[in-house]
Design a protein around this nucleic acid. Structure first.
Lengths: 360, 360
DNA sequence: TCTCCTAGTTCATACGTATTAGATGCGGTG
DNA sequence: CACCGCATCTAATACGTATGAACTAGGAGA
């Protein structure tokens, strides 16, 4: 049965017939570029005219089948992106990625790890779904290591947003300089007279957390301070950051400043707000506090916490540039980039309290 | 030269060789579904094993060239999405689309119309880029009509978010009920005693604007009011909505209420805020005002303007459902859906001033 | 007149998959 | 033993494009 319901689109063969030339000639004219200057001007015009009359448009599928490239870049997120607050965290990355993808002449393929994570993993059905794209940007905190390993093993071109390491093999990434940024915060606190600085780290042992811890240690070292291991504590749930705990740390450990690693959702900010509202501890008068990063969404009525912020859109853009570079024939310029963070002074740190520990 | 730099992706032929069967068999096993139950279980296992070992994944281009399904849904936005404020307007649609796309087991292909619009149009490079996807969601106010026509002509499956019409042919869409919502606002104003209601419409003649105008006229008619054509005015630039103008309308035309169509960016809100701040006209005491829609981003410190809001995420989801429906063999349930808007009472309308026109 | 060149064009094929119409083998039936 | 049916599998082909090799015509040179 000849195509009947849905009308068949005109092909180069149709144009060729109409213009009285061969399909190859049509291809040469249409795809223009290199070899097309061997074509007589009259022929070229005839072909173009025929193409216009028929309303021809090239078939992308055929083109990329022939060329081996799909001109798609993938974006895969390990985290479900739908809980609203995480969404706000990842959105800026996505914007940067999208913008640069377009600038590079690619389209963006959004892999939905989103729902029922079970069957939407990278290797769903035993096959690497990402391969649909020429290369892929990866994102997310809770990386499934086996999958990351597999990706590296099979030499699939990808760039991770955020520093990631695997056992054997090299991961390309664009990371934020958590080490330097954290160290800088410690330095600033020390400048203001703080010597007992509590570091509340995330409970899981991922690269972003390790980097912050390293920055903390380096910062203390640069300041000539010893690391008191009791001052490094895991914070399982942001809600645990309560006034009671802070009072305990101040009283028990002589802490004058607290560093805390934000979560991708809004729970930490909620906890902070609750603490501030209670007014049993005043920040920064009784205790300084700084965030090692930036909570997802920043609204003006929110307190201007001392923190540092990552250039999320820029990281997205840079990741795409690196990926495109990777796809090129030549050796890529670099496979790992660390981008500096911006220190936001804010209003939640101040000079260390001169007197003895706070007593109320 | 055999592929050398980056390893060539394994194909069905590779699998076939390894499993000792033919390519056709591999295809039958892989694409699963219909005819694959004719395959012996042992063979099937062998093929799947080989595929897994080689890290096979199907080539979309080849698949869609052959007429198969790519399991991709496209999303194309006519507007550049990057000016920050427009971004906020379109984001909720995107979320809905993404969510439902995932739920339906598709991946989402983001076509970037984003940069240099010239070469990123649908038919860029003489090719219909959308074709890579099985179907496509379209979005955006400034539709390029020729392209929309072409899409309809070649019978490509797509759904527009927002009502859109073309000369000959039928566009599938999920629209917001601007007519009903606008009419309802007029009714409410009339209930509060307003009879001279100014309607500030967008300057361009697109469907969303036409629908609002129709709603305005219908609302007046239902209220038993005549339409005074002088009270329908085009608003080219939101900044033109100044105190001076409002005073003029109140004094000159006896206007007691203003309806204004919001833009996708923040300019209208800025103008409104400026007007409120000046305090030369008090809303709603001196004049009621309502927005025929919702400005992109709503932050709590912003005034709670009377308005109606569209269920943007839901529209996105519904559009995807409709598209998937369209892709199925059966006749789609519907090709046009209108979704009601939610009236937000807000605080910017009130009873019509009893006395004569405001004088200061 | 024959060869050679060059500009202009066509031939033939490959890309990776899906699909239809056979091919193959095998056990059973008349 | 010929034949049929059944269960599996394969051969062949089409999809639309790009491209290197081959061809053609017409003129220049020998």
């Amino acid at each position: 049965m000849p195509p009947q319901g849905r009308r068949r689109r005109p092909t180069q063969v149709d144009i060729a017939r109409r213009a009285g030339v061969s399909q190859a000639t049509v291809s040469l004219v249409i795809s223009g570029g290199a070899a097309s200057d061997q074509i007589a001007e009259s022929t070229r015009q005839a072909v173009l005219a025929a193409a216009a009359e028929l309303g021809y448009s090239a078939n992308v599928a055929a083109r990329s089948l022939k060329g081996g490239r799909s001109h798609l870049l993938g974006l895969y997120t390990f985290e479900p992106v739908f809980p609203t607050d995480q969404r706000d965290f990842y959105y800026p990355f996505l914007l940067g990625v999208e913008e640069e993808t377009a600038a590079q002449g690619y389209d963006l393929l959004l892999f939905s790890s989103v729902t029922s994570a079970a069957d939407r993993s990278i290797y769903a059905g035993g096959a690497n779904r990402l391969k649909l794209a020429d290369g892929c940007i990866l994102l997310g905190r809770n990386v499934r290591r086996e999958e990351l390993n597999a990706l590296v093993q099979e030499d699939f071109p990808f760039v991770f947003i955020g520093r990631r390491e695997v056992e054997d093999g090299e991961v390309s990434y664009v990371g934020a300089d958590y080490v330097g940024a954290t160290s800088a915060v410690v330095a600033e606190l020390h400048r203001q007279g703080h010597e007992r600085i509590l570091y509340l780290r995330a409970i899981d042992d991922t690269e972003p957390t390790r980097d912050r811890e390293q920055g903390y240690r380096e910062g203390l070292a640069s300041a000539g301070l010893e690391v008191d291991e009791r001052l490094i504590q895991g914070l399982a749930d942001p809600a645990d950051l309560s006034v009671e705990h802070v009072l305990h740390w101040i009283g028990g450990y002589g802490v004058t400043a607290v560093l805390v690693e934000p979560t991708e959702d809004n729970r930490l900010v909620d906890a902070l707000t609750a603490m501030t509202d209670s007014e049993r501890v005043r920040f920064p008068d009784d205790c300084s506090i700084a965030l090692l990063g930036e909570p997802p969404s920043w609204t003006p009525e929110l307190r201007d916490w001392t923190r540092f912020s990552l250039p999320r859109a820029e990281m997205g853009r840079e990741a795409v540039r690196m990926l495109v570079d990777l796809l090129g024939d030549a050796q890529p310029a670099s496979r790992q980039t660390i981008i500096p963070c911006t220190f936001v002074p804010g209003d939640s740190i101040g000079p260390a309290p001169a007197g003895p520990a706070l007593r109320r």
